[in-house]
Simulated assay, not measured.
Amino acid sequence: MTARRSRHRSAAYAALALGLAGSLALTGCNSHSSKKSKKSSSSSSKSKKRKIIGGGAAAAGAGAASRRVPDCYPSTYKVTFSQQTGPKSHVAVKFKNSTSRDCKLYNAPLLRFDNAKRPLPLLPGTPGHLDGTRITVPAHGYAYAVIPTNTAATKGTEQKSVAIDFMGVSASSVTHGPATVDFAEKRLHISVGKSKVTNWSSSIHGAQLAGGVDK
């Protein structure tokens, strides 16, 4: 073999070697770029999932807040009184929830007749007596309490007015009030003496039963 042919072959091998090295380098770059792209795509997907989960939790929290039941408020038109006569004589106290959402009442109404310093006591033995009992009054629904007046002492004398507070979870707490009802203005004849009042009930029959004046 001549020296010239040997030089030609050496040059061809060198060119081939350079070509192979360039191809391998390009493949490595492409592989590295592909891995980066996959990592970026995975990270973006995780971030989107976190956002969706976070948004769902916030929405759930907002939904729970909107479902919280507010306290009921007394007013001269929401709380009404009526006197029932006979052997089972009693004063019926009726609360109307005039709003479009539920509200809650605790224990019993606090009633101070004719500017009395202390409210009417709760009737002993009333279900839930001073134990934080709560009832939910549905939208446009009613709640009832009863004041037994079936003896001369409990019937007492005719009252002119009553101030109403709504009790909280304890006997010493008040959520809202007072609202004052003028019986003369409403042409009502309400007689109350040494009486006591039952807890709130979802039905008039339940309140009468608690007061021992059910018919």
Rank of each mutant, 00 (worst) to 15 (best):
H32T: 14
S34D: 13
S34H: 10
K35H: 11
K38G: 10
K39T: 11
S40M: 11
S42I: 07
S44L: 12
S45F: 06
K48F: 07
K49H: 11
K49Y: 09
R50N: 14
R50C: 04
R50H: 14
I52A: 02
I52P: 00
I53C: 00
I53D: 04
G55K: 00
G55S: 10
A57W: 00
A59P: 01
A59N: 00
A59H: 01
G63L: 14
G63R: 08
A65L: 12
A65R: 08
A65I: 03
R67W: 05
V69H: 03
V69L: 06
V69S: 08
C72A: 10
P74M: 05
S75T: 06
S75I: 03
V79M: 02
V79K: 00
F81L: 08
S82M: 11
Q84M: 14
G86K: 09
G86R: 11
G86H: 09
S89N: 09
S89Q: 12
H90R: 14
V93H: 00
V93A: 03
K94M: 13
K94Q: 15
F95W: 06
K96R: 13
T99G: 13
S100Y: 12
R101E: 13
D102E: 11
C103R: 02
K104R: 13
N107V: 03
P109T: 02
L110V: 02
D114L: 02
D114K: 04
D114Q: 04
N115D: 15
N115T: 06
N115A: 12
A116N: 13
A116H: 05
K117M: 08
R118M: 11
P119K: 06
L120C: 00
L122F: 06
P124S: 14
P124H: 09
G125C: 12
G128R: 07
G128E: 12
G128Y: 08
H129I: 08
L130D: 11
G132H: 04
I135K: 04
T136A: 05
T136V: 15
T136C: 03
V137P: 01
V137R: 03
G141S: 08
A143M: 09
A145N: 07
I147F: 04
I147P: 02
P148R: 08
T149H: 08
E158N: 11
S161E: 09
S161M: 07
V162K: 01
V162H: 00
D165M: 00
F166I: 01
F166H: 01
M167S: 02
M167C: 04
G168R: 02
G168S: 02
